[in-house]
């Protein structure tokens, strides 16, 4: 990896990536973010309904991801766990709530970045600035939590999808993904994953958080390689 010294000229956003991956691989990268966004989203809806977690076809989706992603990502443990999950969505939803949504003082595991950052307000401001910069707006009932794990993942999904839909030589979405990952998601998710593992070892939630963590690290490495020099 090249140095990021100050003497380096500003990266050209028009530079072409060497050996760009195919459309399917790029699409898979974004789809993985969408998948993880969905898996980490609260299953509770304001109308009182509970959506199923995880989706019924998760093992197939994970298997597909593993085949198509532009980097290696072993999701077999997660896929196996999904197969073994009981069909009691309500119980799973209750586990989600008790881990991430209710508790004293506060939920046992943070699901929002600002709850664990020392510089919470600065972090939150930067997240909103990223969203504003890229025109990502939140539904009215979710505006209060732009730092929710699921929302941050959806933003990365958006960046990935834009990159996939746009010109391959336009690297701005990859650059933003790289920065947002390192400055935000990877600044707090690893600790959260550890916390999940400590509290519910061997659970679906540990596997999911662990899988997500590994995915983020893999993507970070892929971005670093892909953007080598930027």
């Amino acid at each position: 990896m090249r140095s990021h010294g100050t003497a380096r000229s500003k990266p050209s956003v028009a530079r072409t990536v060497d050996a760009p991956p195919g459309d399917a691989a790029l699409r898979a990268r974004g789809a993985a973010y969408a998948l993880f966004s969905e898996l980490t989203r609260s299953p509770f809806r304001p109308d009182g309904s509970i959506v199923a977690l995880p989706p019924a076809d998760l093992p197939e989706l994970l298997a597909e991801l593993g085949r198509v992603l532009p980097f290696g990502f072993d999701a077999s443990a997660l896929a196996a766990a999904a197969v073994d999950l009981c069909d009691d969505d309500a119980a799973l939803a209750a586990q989600y709530a008790s881990l991430f949504e209710v508790g004293q003082p506060g939920p046992p595991v943070a699901i929002r970045e600002s709850l664990v950052r020392d510089d919470a307000r600065r972090a939150l401001e930067e997240i909103v600035r990223y969203y504003d910069f890229f025109g990502y707006r939140l539904n009215a009932d979710e505006q209060w939590c732009p730092d929710h794990l699921s929302v941050e993942l959806e933003f990365l999904h958006l960046l990935a999808a834009r990159h996939e839909a746009g010109r391959r030589d336009d690297l701005q979405h990859l650059l933003a993904s790289r920065d947002f990952l390192s400055r935000h998601l990877l600044a707090w998710l690893p600790a959260a994953a550890t916390s999940v593992g400590d509290r519910v070892p061997g659970s679906w939630w540990q596997l999911l958080w662990d899988g997500l963590h590994r995915y983020l690290e893999s993507d970070r490495l892929w971005l670093a390689t892909t953007l080598d020099g930027y």
């Binding site: 998948l35 509970i50 199923a52 969505d89 309500a90």
Partner: peptide, 9 residues
């Protein structure tokens, strides 16, 4: 109300 849904993707 529990609604199992297909994954959106």
């Amino acid at each position: 109300t529990i609604s199992r849904r297909r994954f959106l993707l």
